[in-house]
Nucleic acid binder design. Structure first.
Lengths: 138, 138
DNA sequence: GTAACTGCAAAATATTTGCATCCTT
DNA sequence: AAGGATGCAAATATTTTGCAGTTAC
């Protein structure tokens, strides 16, 4: 696991630092999306707020994580799949937010539905956000 | 037009005040979604930031406007349709953001696609956000 | 050794709250 | 007249920036 994190950072031409490893580990261990506040909490306040801001921004820029727009307008971050590269995100998957436990899932395996738009409109990117109850809270 | 605004406020049991009328007029005239900053700009700074915060919040609570989660995590607001009532929003329509002019459209007439979720997950609300180019910018 | 990363301080921004005053009903 | 709405001031919270010290390569 340590190895794959190493690879991710190296591939993105980023220095392998303690902070970046820890933050990536948090994402891998949690399995779903995290907010800035989540990271602060989970890390046990071991690193600076500013560092978290900068690290998350760097990861987004490099295509390591992506942001998820949520209905309450808090910002969530989640690991990208291989398809994402620096400057080119491909996160057209469905995001699911559980209203009970608050977990945010990236449903990568769900087929993306076809969205119709009016004549003259062209689609570049589609974001789908579903609120409901997840299988653990049912 | 003045009349319908009056009706909206009365129906929601809100006092009909100059500020509220002006803000609702901005929404009606613009035709698409506005951010807090848009309202500040469009109003010519005639009223206080705080008043805008409180007015928008009140309108959301009463089901007059709804928020739109955008990919860059800025908060947009748009007028609700008749179906929305206090505490019960029904804004499951598609939102379209033009990457050229930045306008946000509520595509009410577009049929909502069926989203599949894994076994054990149940859906309460679906938000669809499409980025692309609108017909005016094509 | 050099460039990149981090942490602290501080600045800039955004949002919320309290309260006295004004406006709607 | 009474209750709600507004504006100002101030308290909080959030995000950004500058810079000096530290770490990775």
């Amino acid at each position: 696991m340590k190895n794959s994190i190493n690879t991710i950072l190296k591939t993105s031409q980023l220095s392998v630092t303690t902070n970046r490893i820890k933050i990536l580990e948090l994402f891998q261990n949690s399995g779903n999306a995290l907010s800035h506040a989540d990271i602060e909490k989970l890390s046990g306040k071991h690193f600076d707020r500013v560092t978290i801001y900068r690290t998350l921004q760097t990861f987004v820029d490099k295509g390591i994580i992506h942001t998820i727009p949520t209905a309450d307008n808090s910002i969530m971050y989640a690991l990208c799949k291989e398809a994402c590269t620096s400057g080119h995100h491909h996160d057209d998957h469905v995001h699911f937010i559980c209203e009970v436990c608050g977990s945010t899932y990236c449903l990568d395996n769900i087929s993306l539905p076809q969205v119709n738009v009016p004549k003259g409109f062209s689609i570049n990117q589609t974001n789908i956000l579903v609120h409901g109850v997840c299988k653990n809270c049912k």
